[in-house]
Design a protein around this nucleic acid. Sequence first.
DNA 1: CATAAGTTGAACACCACTGTTCAGGTTCAC
DNA 2: GTGAACCTGAACAGTGGTGTTCAACTTATG
Lengths: 208, 208
Amino acid sequence: MSTPQNKVRRTTGSERDEPRRRADAERSIAAIIAAAIDCFRQDPNVSLTAVAKAAGVSRVTLYAHFPSREALLDAVLEDSVQQADTALQAQRLDEGPADEAFSRLVRSGWNILERHAFLLLASEGVIAPARRRTHHKKVLARVERILVRGQEEGVFRTDLPLAWLVTTFYSLLHAAAAEADARHLKTKSVPDILDRTLSSILRPVPNS
Amino acid sequence: MSTPQNKVRRTTGSERDEPRRRADAERSIAAIIAAAIDCFRQDPNVSLTAVAKAAGVSRVTLYAHFPSREALLDAVLEDSVQQADTALQAQRLDEGPADEAFSRLVRSGWNILERHAFLLLASEGVIAPARRRTHHKKVLARVERILVRGQEEGVFRTDLPLAWLVTTFYSLLHAAAAEADARHLKTKSVPDILDRTLSSILRPVPNS
DNA sequence: CATAAGTTGAACACCACTGTTCAGGTTCAC
DNA sequence: GTGAACCTGAACAGTGGTGTTCAACTTATG
């Protein structure tokens, strides 16, 4: 029931495993994962039938690669984490003043991070909690680390729980993405708004 | 398909309508709505079967009072809005400095507001958009009004879209509630944390 | 080009939820 | 206490997703 099901070893792009798949299959898998990200984003309860259709692939094909909803969601999550991690690495978050690095993170990485966090949220009750935590930590840790650094440098406040600051971060990222989705906010203006909002929260309070 | 279904006129508590129900029925309805709030909170996709069980009532009884999922959710929403509205009225939000009134609102009304907003969110795709907006406005307007007042008094910032501030408000309320639910935050400490976080966001920025 | 890998639509059994009906039992209200 | 309102369990058909099998077709790869 909670078997990870590693039947499919995602080699989406890099082929370093033995069970070499045909270019055919590789393409299908990529299409499915891409479609799944979109679908789960719109509705965490999409049927796999819908995902298959969105991927332009037969339902049977989907099941051939991902034996269950859990397996698919797990692969999507893995892929998403990978993307996010790569994007964040290019960010050089450990260089320069923490608050500046944080601004860089928000301005250029908000959409990636939001997508990841959202998928993680959508996996609630489908993916085993332990596995979810593993995925979560990988990306969460990056944000947490820069917050801690900022606190040590004295540019971020220390009078609120660290966990709460992280939650706030993701919460507002998601809210902004939702607003942009609903056309209440221009996507172009989101980075600036987010940066200003989060800066206000993180800045040490003058009084008190 | 999108018929409002006003078969049931919720009279939960106040009996001013003609179709006087037996105390019997009144009790069932109240139990169902109460259970529904809890259930929808835990999982927006609960089966009505589960709700009925949680309410200690037969499935048939539930359907007797609420002909459809939509009808139930609507009644729950109506009830929730009523509660929130009543609670907020007792708050005297229009008196005193806006920032102080806002603190009062956050500290004593966060859980009520959060619950309402969450239910509203859960009703996405089930309740007709128009009806959702009606419900939303009723509570949202209260928050919006006090924000505007604060801006006019010069104690709240004006360099961010009003809609975004409102979104931020609800977003963080929900995040805090979720954290409290998950035992990551002590319920007792939530009001303080929320107040401090939101104050930071609303305070006019010194520079720029 | 020959073969194995991959895809496909159709059909299948299975399960959970939805709404509805009905006959029989409880409980309120007058 | 009598009748109407109410609740109940059981059973029903209908819907929609899940996961699997199969034979036939297509495509990559050596």
